[in-house]
Design a protein around this nucleic acid. Structure first.
Lengths: 162, 162
DNA sequence: GTATTAGTTCGGTTTTTCCCGAACTAATAC
DNA sequence: GTATTAGTTCGGGAAAAACCGAACTAATAC
């Protein structure tokens, strides 16, 4: 019974780990740590248990926990009379996820804006008819980025109130 | 004059390249290729010009062009009486971007759903009061994924008609 | 058919990433 | 203070990623 649950947990850590590796550019063990923290939840998990559960060295766990904390994804708390740290996912993680999305889209917006500027300038200097840069793709892209950003900004408010 | 524009283009390729490297998991040169294609636009660019412009080996360009095509991001066309291939970004790239977003969110949805299942089961077996898993984070996350997915699905329709 | 050039394949090298172990520091329990 | 254990640092090694060059194939121009 207990084994079946643990097995299920491990499978989930692995699955979520691979996802984080692929989509969030995490190192394999870093992804497993983060996945473990997500699945462990608020209660947190100690350094030494991570070392055991993930079968990794202390140094690796230490390094990754630090980068995860530096990126704001992970925090820890302590219990009085217990010097261990209990690591968990930063409380307002969902808000963070939304902000990360917005950041990424903003960066893209800036780049495509600059590309448009560049292409306009190039077109104005170009003399060969029919050889101009088209701007539609970039303009549509900007439009899309605005819209999807707005949608997430709205969700930020709504979900905060939930 | 021409130099100034070329300089600007190179800067943009570099900037967009780094973005693709970081956010889209591309290899450095792969990212530069893709960036070049985006900035070159519909007219496309030949294999040999990529080799020259990016100062890379034919083999590397070849390999990356193939993976980029395999992932559906890049296509090519030919001109009659010219055996070179002209590579460019796949025409409906924006639609593709939206689909990639939806895919990613779907994957996350599935994983978090399974985590919820797991935690419910664990809670039902748990006897220690106050030691249950909380589900709010995951439930909010699912809600958010649904909403943002819906927003993008709407945009898919609207922007297609644009 | 032949020459030429576009593009591919594959083995190998360089570079980077990832992780570990051992020695170390820091904190607290006693 | 001293012992113990939590956590860190750093040098190095293994593994993976990225790129290249040389030899090759394929296509077309002539």
């Amino acid at each position: 019974m207990q084994n079946e649950l643990t097995e299920r947990k491990n499978k989930l850590v692995e699955r979520l780990g691979i996802f984080c590796e692929n989509e969030d550019n995490m190192a394999p063990l870093e992804a497993r740590i983060f996945a473990t923290l997500i699945i462990t939840g608020k209660g947190g998990i100690t350094f030494e248990k991570l070392v055991k559960d993930l079968n990794a060295s202390k140094s690796t766990i230490c390094t990754h926990l630090n980068t995860l904390q530096a990126s704001g994804r992970v925090s820890y708390f302590t219990k009085p009379g217990d010097r261990k740290r209990y690591f968990n996912v930063t409380p307002n993680r969902l808000l963070q996820v939304m902000n990360e999305m917005l950041d990424k889209w903003n960066k893209q917006y800036d780049i495509h804006s600059e590309i448009i500027e560049y292409k306009k300038e190039a077109n104005s200097q170009n003399t060969i008819v029919g050889d101009e840069f088209e701007l539609q793709f970039h303009e549509k892209y900007l439009l899309f980025l605005e819209e999807v950003s707005n949608a997430v900004k709205k969700l930020k408010k709504n979900i905060a109130e939930l």
